[in-house]
Design a protein around this nucleic acid. Structure first.
Lengths: 195, 195, 195, 195
DNA sequence: CATGAATGAGAGTTCATTCAT
DNA sequence: GATGAATGAACTCTCATTCAT
C-alpha cells in the first residue's frame, strides 16, 4: 500500500467520520460514504469491507486524539481542580454538540456489536478515564484541594454521571444549565468552590 | 373501532414489544412484526403506519405500567430508605437483563426521533422520577434517615448515574458488582448504612 | 398458496425452462428470469430463492414428462425392437436439437451441484432408463428378436453411448449421420436389422 | 516478445490450468487467475485478453501432452490388446480423478464457445483417437487378437462410451467398478479375455 | 513491461407499501 | 376488516477493464 493509498484511506475515514456524526451508525450505508467521499462504488471496497469496519477505525482514530487532548490538559502549573474542571468542561462542550459528535453512532454501533471485552474500545476508554480521574482526585486530596474518602468510587461515579448526561443529551435533551448543575454537584461533593 | 379491533391492536403491541426487546428499534421491520404476529402484511397497516408509531405506543403502555410499579413500592410502613433501596434494586434488576428490556430500542428510537419535548415520554419519565426521588429524600431527611443538603440535586444526580449505568450495560457491559458499588456510593452519600 | 399462485409458479417454471434451454444454467440470472416472465424483481423471490432452486424444479417437471413419453411408446402390439428403435430415435431427435433442450443446462447444473445421490434426479433417470432397456432387451431375446448374452451390460452400454452422443452434440458437434451410425452399431450388436 | 515474456506466459498458463481444474471454466474470473499467479491485475492483460483465450491455450498445451502420452504407450513389443487395455486404463484413471482434471472446464468452455469446426481441438482429439483405436483394432484383428467386423464403428463406439463415462463421472457419479464393467464389456465385444 | 488504484455496470436480495379480491 | 401477491426502490458486493505512474 503506497503513500497515496494511506492518504486516501485517511481521507475516507475523515469523511466517513462526518457522515457518522450526522447520521449515527446504523443508518449509514456504504453508498452514503461513497457519495460523501465522491469516489466510486467499488473504490470504497478496496479499502474497507463494510461500515462496521470503517466505524471501528474511525473510533480508533478518535480515541487516540482523545488521549492526546487529555494529556495536553495536564500542564505543569495546573492544579488538580483546574484539570478536573477543564476536563468536565471539555465533556460538557462535547455532549452539548448534540449532532456534532460520535456519541449516537458509537452507542448504535455497540448496541449490535457486542465485541469481546478486550476489543471494546469504549470500555478501555471508560476504564482509563476512571483511572486518570482517580489519580487526579488523589493528587487533589494530597494538595488539600479536595475532600474525598473514596477516590476510586468517586471517579467511577463521575464517569457514570457523564455517561448519563451523554445519553440524555441524545435522548431526552440536556441544556447547558443542566450540565452545569451536575458539574457543580460533583465539585461540591469534592468540596471545591468553582469560580 | 370494535372490541375485536381493540383486542387485536393490543395483541400486536404486545407481540411487537417482544420483537423490540430482542432486536432494538432500528433493526425491526414491518415484516418482522407481521411475522411475529402471524398476521397478513396488509393487516398490520390497518392498525399502524410504521414501526415508529408502533414503538411509541409500546412505550406508552410500558410507561403506564412503570408508574404502577413505582406506586406499588410505596407502602404505608416502609421507610424512605426502604423505598429508595427497593427502587434502586428494581433498576438494577432491569438493567442487568441486558437483552430482555426495551432500553436499547428506546435509545435507538430517540436517536432518530427527536420529538418535541412535550411528547417526549422519556423526558417525562425522567423528570417524574427525579421528583419522586426528591420527595423521598426530603421525607428521609425529615425522618433523620438521610443527610442531604441539596435534595433536588441529589435526586437528579441519582437519575443520571442510573442512566449512565443503563447505557453502559448496553455498551461496555456492566456486572452485578459494578451496579452494587454505584448503589452503595449513592447511599453512602446520603449517609445510609445498607443492610 | 392459492390457485393463482400455483398457476403463476407454473408459468414461471415454464418460462424459466425456455431461458435455461437457451442459455444453459450458469449464465442465467434471476434478472434474466424476471425479464423473461415480465414480472417484478421482488416478485420472483416470492416463489423461488435462486436459480438453482428454479432449475431443480424445472428438472423435476421435465423428468415427469420424460417418464410419460417413455410409457406412451410402449403400446400393446409393438415389438421390443420397435420400442427400442423408437426410443433411440426419440433420443436422436432430442440430442440433435442442440440449443433446444436442457442438456447443457443440466450438465452445468450438476457440475457445481454435486447433490447427494438420492437427490440426483439425473442418476435416477439414468438408472431407470437402464432398467427399462434391460427389460426391453430381455423381452426381445425371449421373442427371438434380439441376440444378447449380457442384457444388463448391453443396456448400460447403450445408455453410456447415448450420454456420449449427448455431450458430444454439445461440444464437438454431432450430425444426424453420426447418430444413425451409432444407433445402427447398437442394433447390429443385438443382431437387429433396421428397416 | 523476450525470453522472459515467454516464461511468464507459460507460468500463467500452468497456474491457470490448476485454477480451471479446480473450478471449471465459467466460474473462473480474471481476478482468480491474477490471484493464483500473484501478479498484478493489469499484468495479466498484457498477456491475455480474457479467460476464454487463456483456457484455449491451456487446452492446446494439454492436447500436445496428451498426444505424447498416447505415443509413449505404443512400444515395440506390446500387443494391440496390451495397448488398448493400457489406453482404457489410462482413461479410467483420468475420469475417476473427478476434480483433478480439465473435463468439466472443457465441457463448460465448449458449451458457450461453439467454435468453428476446424478450430475445435476437442473434435480433433476425438477424431484422432478414433483413428488410432481403429488402427489398433485392425492390427489386433490381423494378429488374431481381436474379432471385429466393423473396426471403424467399434472404435467410434468405444470413444462415445468413454465420453459417456466422462460426463457421467462429472454429473451422476461413476465408481471404479462401473468403469471396469464398461471396459470389460468393450473388450468382450472384441472377444478379448482380460487378465 | 508492470503495477494496482479506480471506475462503473450489474447481480443478488430485502422490504415498505399498495391494492385487487 | 383482512389477505397476501406484486411492485420497485435501495443496498450490498464483485469484477472486467482501464490508465496514470
Amino acid at each position: 500500500m503506497g503513500d497515496k493509498s494511506i492518504q486516501k484511506r485517511k481521507y475516507i475515514l475523515e469523511t466517513a467520520r462526518k457522515v457518522f456524526m450526522e447520521k449515527g451508525f446504523k443508518k449509514v450505508t456504504m453508498k452514503d460514504i461513497v457519495e460523501a467521499c465522491d469516489i466510486s462504488r467499488g473504490g470504497l471496497y478496496l479499502y474497507f469491507e463494510n461500515t462496521a469496519q470503517i466505524f471501528l477505525e474511525v473510533l480508533r482514530m478518535e480515541s487516540q486524539e482523545a488521549d492526546d487532548v487529555f494529556s495536553d490538559s495536564i500542564t505543569e502549573d495546573a492544579t488538580a481542580a483546574d484539570i478536573l474542571i477543564l476536563f468536565l468542561k471539555e465533556q460538557k462542550k462535547e455532549l452539548l454538540r448534540k449532532k456534532d459528535n460520535l456519541t449516537q453512532a458509537t452507542y448504535e454501533f455497540y448496541f449490535e456489536n457486542s465485541l469481546p471485552k478486550k476489543d471494546n474500545i469504549l470500555k478501555k476508554q471508560f476504564d482509563s478515564a476512571v483511572k486518570i480521574i482517580e489519580k487526579l482526585i488523589e493528587t487533589g486530596v494530597e494538595n488539600g484541594e479536595f475532600l474525598c474518602e473514596d477516590c476510586e468510587g468517586t471517579a467511577r461515579n463521575i464517569m457514570f454521571v457523564l455517561e448519563g448526561l451523554k445519553i440524555s443529551a441524545q435522548t431526552i435533551g440536556v441544556t447547558s444549565e443542566m450540565v452545569d448543575r451536575e458539574i457543580l454537584f460533583i465539585l461540591k461533593s469534592l468540596d471545591v468552590e468553582e469560580n
